[in-house]
């Protein structure tokens, strides 16, 4: 796995991608540092980090677009998949390779809080907490990009699809605010979910009987929920969609609060997408 991390990391700096990623991120950190710390005479560094989270929207697709897509297109995946390394090691290696570029970039930006500390009082615990949140937030977005890159063998498609997905994740909170919250809508949504699960199961196994069973059990469960505890359908759509709300979990960090639950959330979010990427590669071998 170490070999793959090393290769991915070095590949970023053999082409322009690594430099573009670092330059854009560093430029915006510097810009916001000057604007919100130096010019406004504020020692609060965490506002800088939370102000530039939007830069991830643009730079994460650049970082992740070629991760899997280019291997498939150049057929170099044949080398990786026929080597004595497991799929999980390959995917983890690629993921950590991309994440290490983010890590390196953030390490460079440490110069700003250090500059700040020479001129005023910096609460280091807040800064460290903010950096951990910022880093894990970026890592979670990279995991999404990694997964999308494994679906296609075209880098441009991977980049555009990643950008669109991240944009959707960005606006998910405002989308949630406009969704119906009544019980009927919640029930319909649950029904759609059950149907989707049954459909995915049918696509994977082609077993009509079991898929039908899953759908039936789902509908019965929804009906049972309505009879015994109808309150669960209140605002159900919003509740489910908010699982994907990465940005709302960042609020604590931007206020300088260090809490464990968003950290666990980001790490599990990344884990799920790394796992999905492994499944995607596995599926390609079986099709």
């Amino acid at each position: 796995m170490l070999a793959i991390i090393k290769k991915e990391f070095l590949t970023y700096f053999k082409s322009m991608t690594g430099y573009i990623f670092m330059a854009s991120l560093l430029f915006f950190v510097g810009l916001f540092f000057v604007m919100s710390n130096l010019l406004s005479l504020s020692p609060d560094y965490n506002t800088v980090l939370s102000n530039i989270t939007f830069v991830f929207l643009l730079v994460v697709p650049i970082l992740t677009m070629r991760l899997m897509a280019e291997e498939t297109r150049q057929k170099t995946d044949q080398l990786l998949l026929t080597s004595p390394v497991s799929l999980t090691e390959i995917v983890m290696g690629k993921y950590l390779g991309a994440v290490s570029v983010l890590f390196l970039t953030l390490a460079i930006t440490w110069i700003y809080p250090i500059i700040l500390s020479t001129m005023g009082s910096v609460t280091w615990s807040e800064v460290i907490g903010g950096y951990i949140g910022f880093f894990l937030f970026g890592s979670a977005l990279i995991a999404v990009g990694l997964f999308i890159s494994s679906i296609t063998d075209n880098q441009v498609i991977a980049a555009v699809a990643t950008f669109t997905t991240l944009l959707l994740l960005w606006f998910i909170d405002s989308i949630i605010g406009n969704l119906p919250t009544d019980r009927i809508a919640g029930m319909i949504f649950a029904g759609v979910l059950a149907a989707a699960v049954a459909f995915i199961f049918y696509m994977a196994t082609r077993n009509l009987f079991v898929s039908g069973g899953i759908l039936l059990v789902g509908i019965l469960a929804i009906a049972a929920g309505y009879i015994f505890k109808p309150a669960i359908y209140n605002g159900l759509i919003g509740k489910v969609l908010s699982w994907f709300s990465l940005l709302s979990r960042y609020e604590d960090f931007s206020l300088g609060i260090f809490s464990i639950s968003p950290i666990i959330y980001y790490i599990s979010f990344s884990g799920v997408f790394v796992f999905l990427t492994v499944r995607m590669l596995e599926k390609k071998r079986w099709s």
């Binding site: 053999k14 082409s15 150049q74 057929k75 170099t76 995946d77 044949q78 026929t82």
Partner: peptide
């Protein structure tokens, strides 16, 4: 294994 298209990294 040498596949039909050698799996090489051009960079």
């Amino acid at each position: 294994y040498l596949p039909e298209f050698p799996p090489l990294y051009g960079d």
